Amino acid sequence: MSIQHFRVALIPFFAAFCLPVFAHPETLVKVKDAEDQLGARVGYIELDLNSGKILESFRPEERFPMMSTFKVLLCGAVLSRVDAGQEQLGRRIHYSQNDLVEYSPVTEKHLTDGMTVRELCSAAITMSDNTAANLLLTTIGGPKELTAFLHNMGDHVTRLDRWEPELNEAIPNDERDTTMPAAMATTLRKLLTGELLTLASRQQLIDWMEADKVAGPLLRSALPAGWFIADKSGAGERGSRGIIAALGPDGKPSRIVVIYTTGSQATMDERNRQIAEIGASLIKHW
């Protein structure tokens, strides 16, 4: 067993022997301040990774656009098919120029040779490549099948209805392509620590998230040296922004954090800054 596999296998073990965790309302004060600064709703939840206990939450059962955070769930569904012998990570998928959609920095470079399922998941999570996500959605049967996968996990809230990039439209009061912070946090925890996926697939999923290259201005910008984070960000229309993450000190994750916002007129930089400040408060009061 590799060191990384050992780390993920012992996530519940280490967490069980940690000192009790206590909620700190100071972080919620910052979440509410972010709402004021952005002029928009902000949803927040913080779960203990081992027990699933909610440590703090704000608007945990209000719907927010998922945006690209759905790509972690998508690759979880792909990995479940791999575990069941219905898919192979090494299978190569070929596609054409007509398949390319807006923001496809990886797939646009491989029109000639195609990409493997493993490479597509890596591109979808680490670079948020939209064509990679659409190609992977095709392998599982489309958005409705991802929703069905989530329902089978016990998540009857999260739903995907459309493809990239239309799913980022974020129309107010439109339930399409949305989740709730509580539902997303619980589902992410199941994917990373539950028995739904094999140990190898859980490790692969967290490795992809740990290698995320496009979430630097968010929670990662607030992390002290030595902290662990595996995350996936999302951005959408109407001032929408979000991030889902597993993080913790001492090089291992111990909490799940989900943050979503929508309806702001603020710039992307300002949305990023507010999420980073929430992260800084979380870490300060850990």
Rank of each mutant, 00 (worst) to 15 (best):
W227M: 03
P65D: 01
L219A: 03
G39K: 15
H110S: 08
N130V: 01
G90E: 15
D48L: 04
H94A: 10
A222Y: 09
M180E: 15
S96K: 10
L79R: 01
T179N: 00
G85W: 06
A235F: 02
P20L: 02
D269W: 10
E169T: 13
L223W: 03
P224T: 06
T198M: 10
M184Q: 04
D83S: 06
I229E: 02
F17V: 15
G154I: 02
L282T: 09
A222L: 07
M115T: 04
L282R: 01
N173W: 15
R255I: 06
R41T: 10
G39W: 08
K190V: 12
I229N: 02
F58I: 08
G234Q: 01
K252M: 13
A215Y: 04
M268P: 07
A276C: 12
T69Y: 03
R255V: 06
G239K: 02
R91N: 08
W227R: 00
T261Y: 06
S233P: 05
L247H: 01
L192H: 04
K32T: 09
L188D: 00
Q265D: 12
P249L: 06
S2I: 15
V258R: 00
Y44R: 00
T158P: 00
G76E: 01
E277F: 08
T198P: 07
V257P: 00
Q204V: 11
V31S: 03
A16R: 04
E237M: 15
V106D: 07
G85F: 06
G251S: 12
Y95C: 03
H94S: 11
Q86Y: 12
I256W: 01
G142N: 07
I256S: 01
M153N: 10
Q88I: 11
S233W: 02
D83L: 02
T69R: 00
A185S: 08
L219M: 09
Q4T: 10
D113E: 14
L74P: 01
P181N: 01
K144L: 13
L146T: 04
L192V: 11
R7D: 07
R255C: 03
C18G: 10
A170S: 12
G142E: 05
I11W: 12
R92G: 06
P20D: 15
T267Y: 07
K232A: 01
A225C: 13
Q203Y: 09
I3P: 13
L55Q: 08
E145L: 09
D113V: 09
R271I: 10
D33K: 15
V21N: 06
T27G: 04
L219K: 04
A276S: 13
I54A: 13
W227G: 02
P65I: 03
D129F: 00
R118H: 15
I283A: 08
S51I: 04
I256K: 00
P60Y: 08
L196D: 11
L73D: 04
Q88M: 11
T158C: 03
A266M: 13
E210H: 10
N168C: 06
H110D: 05
G154A: 07
S264P: 03
I54N: 06
V214I: 07
Q203W: 07
T131W: 02
V257Y: 05
T187I: 08
F149T: 08
